[in-house]
Amino acid sequence: MDANRVSPTFEPKPCPPASRAVPCTPYPVPMTAPRVACQGLTKTLRSGSHDLTVVKDVDLAVQPAESLAILGPSGSGKSTLLGLLAGLDRPTRGTVQVDGQELTTMNEDELARLRRGTLGFVFQSFQLLTNLTALENVRVPLELMGFQGAAARATELLGQVGLAERLTHYPSQLSGGEMQRVALARAFGPRPSLILADEPTGNLDAETGERVLDLLFDLRQDEGTSLVLVTHDAALAQRAERRLHMAAGEAVRLEQ
């Protein structure tokens, strides 16, 4: 783990070629700094009269363009860990950095702004906005960043995930697999530095799940996005470059 704590040298984050007109937020990103890293991350929940330590003293780092699977049985704290890494939850102890910025010292507003365009999410239960169409769901993060060509980019992405015919459908009119593909398009839209996926195939049947995973990894490849994937499925975890095993809240072993 210590190998990841290298003193960084800085270089401006490269902006993509002009043909893909995506907003570019150049801020100095340490070149060798991980996309996301945590040290001694701990989360304790108070349940009634006793405490429950869900995540215990976890260190990890995910490099740019790297994919990491967090593997473990249910109750091992992997989803909680994911939430902590994304700033969706606050740790009881420890530190988390995304693109070199320390999350534990930020307030809710700063965390929200950080998430815009930097992080993309794919959830087990899809978490689409039910009152918006597929196209509008994908547009939301783009519009949040003030991106001018949001509609075009959203249409393009939905085409890439094979939903060109479903642009104006509502989530209630889509199947599980289709909803997850919309979620993928939404997650990748703003070209985030990091995608966080929590059991992305958990609510899908095997065949649909496979297709969704293919899409996920293909898109990741094209964009060079880092990926942290939480799953209990060992086979799924094999598709990632590294795997972190968790049990009872602790990081047990890391394998390549």
Binding site: E108, D109, A112, R113, R115, G117, F121, Q127, V140
Partner: peptide, 9 residues
């Protein structure tokens, strides 16, 4: 979900 996507409260 809004919070997750980056809207502030």
């Amino acid at each position: 979900v809004w919070r997750c996507l980056g809207l502030t409260p």
